[in-house]
Amino acid sequence: MGGYKEYKVGVTMFLVVFGTTLLMTIGIGGVYLGAVPATKLALEKQVNYGSSAWSVRDPLMKGWNQPKIEKRGEMVSNPIGVGKKIFIREGCWHCHTLLPEQSMDWEYFGAPPLAGDFVGESPTVIGSDRKAPDLMHIGSRMPSVPWHLQHHKDPRSVQSKSIMQSFDFLDTGELKALAAYMVSLK
């Protein structure tokens, strides 16, 4: 790196400073967060969604490596996990958060999660922009599957002021899986 010789000190200093910030944030923070033990809810989620992190068997991240469950003698993908993949694919999380925040929020949307609730879940889709109600406890607030099916097909038929778009382009199987995911969020 001959041309940078006169900047030897500067380049070294830069790498030290930038490396230190990485160590302080990603390094220490990552070790700390990685050590959080899984809660019972986290284990339940792992069973439903599968270990959803990186996999070469699913390069398009469409859920091809979804865990199978037995249903009427056949092995099928767990509808809750399939529903979560649809929730991700259709970008539901761009408006609906999955995180009652540690503020007045929990009086309205229910208890905020524990750190251990997310262990093994990827992506967490907690969301950042709440243009629509939080869904972390939607299964407790609205446990009716037919309501969810109707709501996704024609939102304004059940809530006249809703600004959610209609998801009538999803097929019946996808709508059912999405509803199964919704009611699983207790």
């Binding site: 944030t25 990603i26 923070g29 990552g30 967060l33 990685g34 959080v36 986290a42 270990s51 959803s52 992190a53 990186w54 750190a115 997310f118 262990v119 093994g120 879940e121 990827s122 992506p123 967490t124 907690i126």
Partner: peptide, 22 residues
């Protein structure tokens, strides 16, 4: 690269959320 770590390696949970927001 750090943002892509959860895509490329099995990093999950809050650690993943933290890397994504970082």
């Amino acid at each position: 690269f750090i943002g892509a770590i959860p895509d490329l390696f099995p990093v999950t949970g809050l650690n993943e959320a933290y890397m994504v927001w970082w």
